[in-house]
Nucleic acid binder design. Structure first.
Length: 435
RNA sequence: GCGCCCAUCGUCUAUCGGUUAGGACAUUAGGUUUUCAUCCUAGUAAGCGGGGUUCGACUCCCCGUGGGCGCGCCA
């Protein structure tokens, strides 16, 4: 029988990074197996908290990350009758009973009767797990208002969707004993289970929005590429061995097996993610990189209508040194005039002895060039000779005068992209303003 | 409190009884005709503690310690 797995989020808000990681692992497992199926189930039973917006957030997140699903999504709310039918079946065969729990007049709820024997199951990542009968209690499966509880709905839906492997977060391990008991009482084959280690923060607590980004949308806003995030998440709690990290989807799919999933919790490291993101951005075809940057720049007033050719030149220059799309925010000096000057940079590089002479010399020499990179290089060398300064010593003064900041691509490449007119205007402006 | 689970550099991890314990991020020092955020080179850095088992344990077992999860008419 071929593998059928599912991602079963409840649409109650933003899509958490831990949830999407579970989706990724399920997806990888399905794609790794021939004819494997990856299904989506929206557990929207909680009418109070479930919203259409939240459903859309889940769909968007999956699409962004390139996690496609097979078959139509199953909305749990449509399965109500089935859930209750299962409860009736359990009632009929003695696996459940009615009771007014607490007796406060809330009415009778339906309670599942645990088998009363020790239970065990094999977890694909944690090994054999067992629990004694005395440590397991009966539990409510249908509330007194007639609504099914998570455990019942979840198991019944998994039976309906013929799920063969349940791959989910570690926080569900304890529930599994109950779920196995439900399967057995319902006369359904018990699926295989695999529990994924939690993603935690520096304190070892579940990773939350307070630890930086926790929601998938936030990562997108911060400028991460979906492929990089996908690859990085894959490495949290799993490893292909052989020191491999940056891998294509096809490679990850081929290498993915549950027996290589770790059991210990993993801590999210935004710095490593950023580094990996830089690797991904650097190898993107220029037009794709431009699209990514553009999506970002539309949020900035100077980033909306850009000259395509010029924009392409800037992107080409900056691509290899861009760890995050959001970094493009600092490229403003390429596009706006007048440019803002960094106070400290001005203080250190322009308001110093000799800066005036330096800029005057450079202005004269640069005016005489055609602003090709080679010519710019040559002009710089001439300026150094004329001023008796060492190679590269003038670079920063020139850079701050023309860009307003101390960091960026090579000075000659930058000047070339900026163009002669703009560069010289700024140079002269800096000269009269700061020196 | 009770039950279950987990434990290798600061972080993510490799190792499936015998290795100088490897890689990556971060960090440090250089280099890239001394911007840096790319790139290159090198360095610092780890088996929680105590008992066993074994010729030999990071690896297997037990006990501690620390951490996580669970114990809802939440999901």
């Amino acid at each position: 029988m071929s593998v059928r797995v599912r991602f079963a989020p409840s649409p109650t808000g933003n899509v958490h990074i831990g949830n999407i990681r579970a989706a990724i692992f399920n997806w990888l497992f399905a794609r790794h197996h021939e004819n494997g199926r990856f299904l989506l189930r929206i557990e929207d039973t909680d009418r109070e908290r479930s919203t259409p917006e939240a459903v859309k957030a889940i769909l968007d997140a999956m699409e962004w990350l390139g996690i496609n699903y097979d078959e139509a999504p199953l909305y749990q709310s449509t399965q109500h009758a089935r859930h209750l039918e299962a409860a009736q079946q359990l009632l009929a065969n003695g696996h459940a009973y009615k009771e007014d729990k607490g007796g406060t007049g809330q009415g009778e709820c339906i309670i599942f009767r645990m088998p009363g024997t020790d239970m065990a199951f094999h977890d694909e990542v944690k090994g054999d797990l067992r629990k004694e009968a005395k440590d397991m209690k009966d539990f409510v499966i249908v509330r007194s208002d007639g609504s099914p509880v998570f455990h019942l709905a979840n198991v019944v839906d998994d039976i309906t969707q013929s799920i063969t492997h349940i791959i989910r977060g570690d926080d569900h391990v304890e529930n599994t004993f109950r779920h196995v008991a439900l399967y057995q009482a319902l006369g359904a084959p018990v699926p295989r289970y695999a529990h994924l280690p939690m993603i935690v923060n520096a304190q070892g607590k579940p990773y939350s929005k307070r630890d930086g980004a926790a929601y998938i949308g936030q990562f997108r806003e911060m400028g991460f590429s979906p492929d990089a995030l996908f690859n990085y998440l894959t490495l949290l709690g799993w490893s292909p061995g052989e020191d491999r990290e940056k891998m294509t989807r096809a490679e990850i799919i081929a290498a993915f097996t549950l027996d290589r999933v770790k059991s210990a919790p993993a801590q999210m490291d935004l710095r490593k993610l950023s580094h990996m993101n830089g690797l991904y951005l650097a190898e993107l075809p220029l037009d794709q990189f431009m699209n990514g940057v553009r999506e970002f720049l539309t949020g900035l007033d100077w980033g909306r209508s850009l000259d395509e050719t010029y924009f392409a030149a800037v992107c080409k220059l900056m691509q290899s040194r861009t760890p995050l799309y959001s970094q493009a925010e600092t490229w403003n000096f390429f596009f706006i005039d007048p440019i803002p000057y960094d106070e400290k940079a001005v203080q250190k590089n322009l308001k110093k002895e000799g800066a005036r002479t330096t800029l005057e010399t450079l202005a004269t020499l640069l005016t005489a060039t055609d602003f090709s990179e080679a010519a710019l290089q040559q002009a710089l060398r001439q300026a150094e000779t004329a001023l008796g300064s060492g190679e590269g010593k003038l670079n920063q003064t020139l850079r701050v005068a023309v860009t307003g900041v101390t960091v960026g691509a090579g000075i000659c490449e930058t000047l070339h992209v900026l163009g002669k007119e703009r560069s010289l205007t700024r140079l002269n402006h800096a000269l009269t303003t700061f020196c």
